[in-house]
Amino acid sequence: MMEQIIDQEVSTETPVISIHGLYKSFGELDVLKGVDFTVMKGENIAVLGKSGSGKSVLIKIIAGLLKADKGSVNVLGQEVELLNAKELDALRLRIGFSFQSSALYDSMNIYQNLAFPLTMNNKKLNAQQVTQAVEEALDAVGLLNKINQMPADLSGGQRKRIGIARTLILKPEIMLYDEPTSGLDPNTSSEINLLIQDVQKKYNTSAVVITHDLTCAKQTCNQVAILLDGQFLKMGPFDEVFKSTDPQIQSFYNYNFINH
């Protein structure tokens, strides 16, 4: 098995995300069926599962983008479902969300993409302070030289990095990564994995990484959780989970490491 880069020991035992009995349906389709999930401070958890298993729905509920049908979602000590719009916005400033599609604003250049969330949330910053924060975030992802380019001029990997930089500019405590390596070649995927580790070290974040890339899960997370048919099948350190003789877990492992 590959070398696991992130330490499995976590420094503190404070939960930053705590989910109990979470249910979510879309019309006639039950996506999440009683999910229980906890992320401790300083911990990175990978949520693995097949496409359409509800992984992205889970982090969208954590970020308050979707409402749960039933269950409790506690993020940084606050029940997401009970927050009003203002309180939810205050909580969102402490959460960074890296989208699968990067979700960069097409009509803005890279500088404007990063400055936009900062200036909209802090009107008191002057132009120099904004530029400094933008340059710092771009430097953290190694793309300071792209500051004046448009998103359309960037490669997929660069767009992902800029997407991460845009979340870092607000100095989040929790990072939510939605398929950070999907659609990227192995070298670029590896660079993104290293970036996720750097972010955790530099910004002391906790993270939920939604992926079906086992290399990404092993290299970036302390724990992995397998989501299947709307429920977690197994959760724990990577090696422990994949030692399981459960045929579904083995088939997932074999698909990633034997077929690819």
Partner: peptide
Amino acid sequence: SMKVTEQIDAMEVSAINPFKY
């Protein structure tokens, strides 16, 4: 196109009200 490429969601998670903006 902003909706389907998650740019509207990106505004929302950055604590910017996309409806207002």
